[in-house]
């Protein structure tokens, strides 16, 4: 019977078959409704374990959102789904109104304007700070244009501006491998900025940082919000409190609570999850 229903649905008069629908011709972002990222009913399981379970999450354009949750809540898996590293079993992920992220490759998602910073800082250790930013720069990244690419004055300005923002102007000629842990984290954020992303996904930016470095990072991230949308996954509650305007709590693969830091902290369910009864 279900199959019959399926057939009826497919051939109903109002149905527009998916292959007939126009594909968006470009990766132009449309945020006319004020929301930049939609995750709806997303589920994914690994060997029967539901890492993400009917997750619904909406990120507004220009907001700074913190995502917290105990270990195994699905924070990193969620990032993997958005960046195309993991494909969900069901659900839909849209970037703006038009771009279906589930149909794009990792490189295409990055070109569409989603930048990701990994938990462990990964910069190109053998390149200088300047070269790291140059490589990350937005532009034609196909093989032949890259072979003949020359830096224009404008691009150099752009790199210097990013160096200014992340506070590494004095170190531009240093090899990235010789930077301190905190500096590497900032360099990586700088590399994200060079891609002119609309949405920044940042995974545990202050892990292993000193208090001073943490304060610098908080300043950096809050200054980025507005122009970009920023999603931060973090364990450190003090840090989250210092930057968060809106916090989402994930638990067992779905959203447990959402709101300001105070609201979330006073939510009984959240307290249970974190403190265990």
């Amino acid at each position: 019977m279900r199959q019959l229903e399926h057939v009826r649905e497919t051939f109903s008069r109002g149905e527009v078959w998916s292959f007939m629908q126009p594909r968006p011709s470009s990766l132009e972002l449309d945020v006319t409704h004020g929301t930049i990222l939609y995750l709806e009913d997303v589920s994914v399981s690994f060997d029967g374990f539901k890492a993400i379970n009917n997750l619904n999450l909406y990120i507004d354009a220009g907001e700074l959102r913190c995502i917290i949750g105990p270990n195994g809540a699905g924070k990193t898996t969620m990032m993997d789904i958005i960046t195309g590293k993991t494909r969900p079993d069901s659900g839909s992920v849209y970037f703006g109104q038009l771009i279906n992220l589930l149909k794009l490759s990792e490189a295409e998602i990055s070109q569409a304007g989603i930048g990701r910073k990994f938990q462990k800082p990964t910069v190109f250790e053998h390149h200088t700070v300047f070269e790291n930013l140059e490589l990350a720069m937005d532009g034609d990244k196909r093989v032949w244009p890259t072979l003949f690419a020359k830096l224009t004055g404008e691009q150099i300005d752009q790199i210097e501006e990013a160096l200014e923002i992340i506070g590494l102007s004095e170190h531009l000629g240093k090899s990235a491998g010789s930077l301190s842990h905190g500096q590497k984290q900032w360099l990586e954020i700088g590399m994200l900025l060079m891609q002119n992303p609309h949405l920044l996904l940042i995974d545990e930016p202050v892990a292993g940082m000193t208090h001073q470095e943490m304060d610098r990072t908080a300043e950096l991230l809050t200054s980025l919000a507005g122009k970009h949308s920023v999603v931060v996954v973090e364990h450190d509650m003090d840090f989250v409190r210092s930057i968060a305007r809106k916090v989402t709590v994930l638990h067992q693969g779905s959203v447990l609570a959402e709101g300001s830091m105070d609201e979330v902290q006073n939510d009984q369910r959240v307290v249970e999850v974190y403190l265990g009864e």
């Binding site: 960046t83 990792e106 490189a107 990055s110 070109q111 930048g115 990701r116 990994f118 990964t122 910069v123 190109f124 250790e125 053998h126 390149h127 490589l135 990350a136 990244k141 196909r142 093989v143 890259t146 590399m191 891609q195």
Partner: peptide, 16 residues
Amino acid sequence: VAIRDAEDRTRFIGYR
């Protein structure tokens, strides 16, 4: 060289 040192990273910043 970036691919040699950190292949995934290079993919994420948009290179094929």
